[in-house]
Design a protein around this nucleic acid. Structure first.
Length: 394
DNA sequence: AACTATATCAACCGCCAGACA
DNA sequence: ATGTCTGGCGGTTGATATAGT
């Protein structure tokens, strides 16, 4: 049974919106909230379908949208999240406040994908195209781990989104149709400022459970989140990392703590990417959070590969992972991450890296490290030498 | 100046999942 | 249990802008 169209297409306008239409839509939503998108066009006096109105609002008219060029930090975040989540633009957008999924998608397709491609990196797998790396555990081991972790991250994001929706419903049930409430409700995640929590209080229990569970299976059971669906995993449950929602949020928030210059004024070298990866082991000033977010996904993948890969049946190593929240800590602990990228260096390291090292399987892991290091050095160096404005890649 | 190629991005389309009757 | 409605998502298109010849 096919579904009926969202609205009667006959006589409805399509194509670019006029300022007058924008004004009508804005005025209506300011006064009444959007309510039912299907019913909105008639009420607002627009010859558009509800879907078109919703898109126009969410992608363009919403007041909490940041427009203009993406900062280097935003680019970095997109690349890393894309490596983790794939083309899940809405999920990526939740980690880039004030950016819409459509905008991120466009930016990826027109800028970042091409850039990675020209660098010889497969924008889908985020691996070098001529990747000949084959670990002794098999070529798919780390990929499988990453995929598995991505599944959990995806599930977490979905659960998070559901909780946001629930919170939105709750808040809307207590509100009139004022724009204020509408805005809060429709952008509970993406509109958060650095001082505002990105997730509703209702998700804290989930966060807590994710953080404290000793295994995914018990964690999920303990949360009693009725609609939290576990993804179908290709690995045993014991390999799954706990996901720290708060940490992931902080990871995004931390990227905003720094002075983010708009309109592409930032440069990679100002962020210290180049230095952090070319002077491994050095620690600029020793202050926590003083270095911008430099943790690489590839390093993360590497660490997961070594940690999980070597602990497939090792409860001990897994317990470490669960307790320390390695995944998100890696995202967060840029400093220690940069310090301890090499498996051979004698510098400080966090527990995750200790785990990776202690449980690693020798030379194959070292090779993997080298491969990963080269991969991200490539990305970061190339980006460093090619600011968007003068990039030879465009 | 005219034409063509390429880049950009707003908007559309089709599909899906959840809610609801 | 089933069908319909609705909102949301990701892929794609097409109009416009810009660069190159």
């Amino acid at each position: 049974m096919g579904r009926s169209p969202c609205c009667d297409k006959v006589g409805l306008k399509k194509g670019p919106w006029t300022p007058e239409e924008d004004q009508k839509l804005l005025a209506y939503i300011e006064e009444h909230g959007h309510g039912s998108w299907r019913a909105l066009p008639a009420k607002a006096g627009l010859q558009r379908c509800g879907k078109s109105c919703r898109l126009r609002w969410t992608n363009y008219l919403r007041p909490d949208i940041k427009r203009g060029k993406f900062s280097m930090q935003e680019e970095q975040t997109i690349i890393q999240l894309h490596a983790l989540l794939g083309n899940r633009w809405s999920a990526i957008a939740t980690h880039l406040p004030k950016r819409t999924d459509n905008e991120i998608k466009n930016y990826w397709n027109t800028h970042l994908k091409k850039r990675l491609d020209k660098m010889g990196i497969d924008p889908v797998t985020h691996k070098p195209k001529n990747d000949a790396l084959v670990s002794t555990e098999g070529p798919s081991k780390s990929a499988a781990n990453l995929s598995h972790m991505a599944q959990w991250e995806s599930a977490r994001l979905e659960a998070e989104a559901r909780l946001v929706r629930e919170s939105k419903l709750r808040s809307s049930s207590h509100s009139s149709s004022s724009l204020h409430h509408t805005l809060i409700g429709t952008s509970a995640v993406s509109s958060s400022s650095s001082s505002a929590p990105m997730i509703p209080p209702s998700s804290l229990s989930l966060d807590h459970a994710w953080n404290n569970g000793s295994s995914i299976s018990t964690t999920v059971n303990a949360t009693r989140v009725s609609d939290l669906e576990s993804p179908t995993s290709t690995l045993s449950e014991n390999n799954a990392p706990p996901i720290n929602i708060t940490s992931v949020i902080e990871f995004v928030g931390s990227s905003e703590r720094g002075t983010v210059k708009e309109e592409g004024e930032q440069e990679w070298n100002k962020l210290g990417y180049h230095e952090s990866f070319t002077h491994l082991g050095e620690y600029k000033d020793g202050k926590e959070n003083s270095m911008p977010f430099t943790s690489s996904l590839h390093e993360l993948t590497m660490t997961m590969a070594t940690t999980w890969g070597s602990s497939t049946s090792g409860a001990h190593a897994h317990a470490h992972v669960a307790e320390e929240g390695c995944f998100t800590n890696l995202l967060l602990n840029a400093n220690s991450g940069a310090r301890s990228l090499s498996p051979q260096d004698g510098g400080e390291s966090n527990n995750c890296h200790d785990n990776a090292r202690n449980s690693g399987s020798g030379s194959s892991n070292a090779d993997l490290y080298e491969e990963n290091k080269n991969y991200w050095n490539n990305i970061l160096n190339l980006m460093n030498y090619s600011s968007p404005s003068d990039s030879p890649m465009f």
